[in-house]
C-alpha cells in the first residue's frame, strides 16, 4: 500500500511546477558555474556551499508545503482502510525522492556534459550528491514532523523556517561562541561530538575533507582529518546521517498514529 501512496504523491509532485523550477534552477546553476569555470573541482567547492545550505531549505519548505496542500487528500486517504504509517511514509518518500531526483539530474547533467567521467573528482561529486540527498531526506522528515504537530499553517511554516535557520546558522553561532568561551579546556572531543549533532555541519565537513583539505591539515585540523578521513570516521559520519533520517521518520510515524485528524 505504501508503494501506491508513494507512486501517487511522487507522480503528483514530479508533474508539479515547483519540481520543474527546482530542477531548472540546478541546471542553470550547474551550467553557469561550469561555463564560468571549467575546473570541475573548484566548481564542486562552490556548489558545496549552495548544496549544504539550499537543499535543507528547499526540503523544509517543500515538506511543510506539501503536507498542508495535500491535507484534504490525506484526510480522504485516512478514511480508507490503509495503515496510517503507509500514508505518511508514502507521502514522505514521494517528496524526498522527487526532490532528490531534481537535485541529481539538475547537477548531474551539466557535470556529465563537461566531462565528469574523465575527471578525477567523480567520487567527490558523488559525495556531494549523496550528502545533498541525505540532507533532503532529513529536512523533509523534520519539516513534516513540524507540520504534523501544528495545524496552524502560519505557525508550521514559521517553525519549519526557524528549524532550518537553527541548523544552518544559529547552531554554528552557538558552537563557535562556546568554543571561544571554553578556550582553556581541551575541546577536540567536544568539537567532534558537536559536529555530529548537526547534519548540515556534518555534510559540510565530509565534503570539505575531500576537497578543500589544505586548511584543515593545520594544527587541530589534523585531528579532524584523522577522525573523518578514516574508514571508521566515514562510517560513523554516514551512520550518523542515516540516524538523522531514521529518528525523524520514526517520530513521524509515531506522531501520525497518535494524531487526531
Amino acid at each position: 500500500m505504501i508503494s501506491k501512496v508513494l507512486k501517487y504523491s511522487f507522480s503528483d509532485l514530479i508533474r508539479s511546477r515547483w519540481s520543474y523550477v527546482y530542477l531548472v534552477f540546478y541546471l542553470v546553476l550547474g551550467f553557469t558555474l561550469l561555463f564560468l569555470n571549467t575546473n570541475l573541482s573548484k566548481a564542486i567547492i562552490t556548489l558545496m556551499n549552495i548544496v549544504v545550505i539550499l537543499t535543507p531549505l528547499i526540503g523544509t519548505i517543500f515538506g511543510v508545503m506539501y503536507y498542508y496542500n495535500s491535507r484534504e487528500f490525506t484526510e480522504l486517504l485516512l478514511a480508507q482502510p490503509i495503515k496510517r504509517s503507509s500514508i505518511f511514509l508514502g507521502q514522505y518518500l514521494g517528496i524526498s525522492l522527487s526532490l532528490t531526483i531534481s537535485l541529481v539530474a539538475g547537477l548531474g547533467i551539466p557535470f556529465l556534459i563537461y566531462g565528469l567521467f574523465q575527471s578525477s573528482v567523480i567520487l567527490d561529486f558523488i559525495m556531494l550528491l549523496l550528502s545533498g540527498a541525505f540532507l533532503t531526506f532529513i529536512f523533509v522528515a523534520l519539516s513534516v514532523n513540524i507540520a504534523l504537530l501544528n495545524t496552524n499553517k502560519i505557525k508550521g511554516f514559521g517553525y519549519a523556517i526557524l528549524m532550518w535557520l537553527f541548523f544552518a546558522v544559529i547552531y554554528d553561532g552557538i558552537f563557535l561562541i562556546s568554543l571561544v568561551l571554553f578556550d582553556d579546556y581541551p575541546l577536540d572531543q567536544f568539537t567532534l561530538v558537536a559536529s555530529l549533532f548537526n547534519p548540515i555541519d556534518l555534510s559540510r565537513i565530509m565534503i570539505l575533507l575531500k576537497l578543500d583539505i589544505s586548511a584543515l591539515l593545520g594544527y587541530t585540523g589534523a585531528l579532524f582529518q584523522k577522525f573523518f578521513g578514516t574508514y571508521l570516521g566515514s562510517f560513523i559520519s554516514f551512520g550518523t546521517l542515516l540516524l538523522w533520517v531514521i529518528i525523524p521518520v520514526s517520530l513521524m510515524t509515531r506522531f501520525s498514529n497518535k494524531k487526531d485528524f
Binding site: 546558522v169 554554528d172 568554543l179 571561544v180 578556550d183 559536529s195 555541519d201 559540510r204 570539505l208 584543515l216
Partner: peptide, 20 residues
Amino acid sequence: YIVNKTPETIILLRSLFVDI
C-alpha cells in the same frame, strides 16, 4: 583571527555563520 585564538573552530570553515 578566531582560528588563531581557538584553533578548534577551524571545523566551522566555510559555514554560513562564518561567512556572515
